[in-house]
Design a protein around this nucleic acid. Sequence first.
DNA 1: ATTTTGTGATCTATTTATAGATCATAATGG
DNA 2: CCATTATGATCTATAAATAGATCACAAAAT
Lengths: 112, 112
Amino acid sequence: MPRSAVRPYSHYSRDAAVLLGQLIRRGRIERKITAAELAQRAGLSRGLVQRIEKGDPGCAIGAAFEAAAIVGVRLFDADQAALSDLVTANQAMLALLPQAARASRIEAKDDF
Amino acid sequence: MPRSAVRPYSHYSRDAAVLLGQLIRRGRIERKITAAELAQRAGLSRGLVQRIEKGDPGCAIGAAFEAAAIVGVRLFDADQAALSDLVTANQAMLALLPQAARASRIEAKDDF
DNA sequence: ATTTTGTGATCTATTTATAGATCATAATGG
DNA sequence: CCATTATGATCTATAAATAGATCACAAAAT
């Protein structure tokens, strides 16, 4: 919530960010990688790695995901190939849904 | 990779961001919520919602997670209570690990 | 077909995140 | 213990993200 965090984050999204940070830190330490090393490998500054591991909601999602990938945290319970497949599958799903939201007749039945 | 994206994002993290965006858009449309409505409820601008749904890696992770929460996208396959429990459990886990990374003798065996 | 409305894209002002230092502290290995 | 080094915190300059418009277009309902 960028602009002068007037509205607070929900408990859910805050916890999600914190959990991701914990998983990254855990993965990093278990692999015996220093924060500076992770930062370098991810192309980030060490300070940013610190904030990511702390669960700071203001961090760029790409930076956090990159760090996660390096220390072996699996996003969406999927490896690289599975993730790619999910993206493709969802593309197809989205093509079937109405493109603008209002009352419509398509009742999406499947989910995966 | 904020500062002058000198290093590219990995395929994995880019896909993860795109997938999250897709899931959010899908959840939003299935719930017949407009982008403007989602933006308002999440405390974001409509433009930011657009970027999040597109999978822009530069978006704040808190903003993306907030939008996800509102349209019912489950992060880490967990509902609010489960997420909170995971955070607590991980806190305990992290307490057992060495606090700085170098050669150590603790061989982390469990994962969950 | 018409009208309404959601969406996508673009622009600017402003806030904010980030890189890159530095310093103090704590934890690790010897 | 001692030496080393990883971490945490803080500061500044700069780049980037965000809010808030506006506009054209597409899509949906009547």
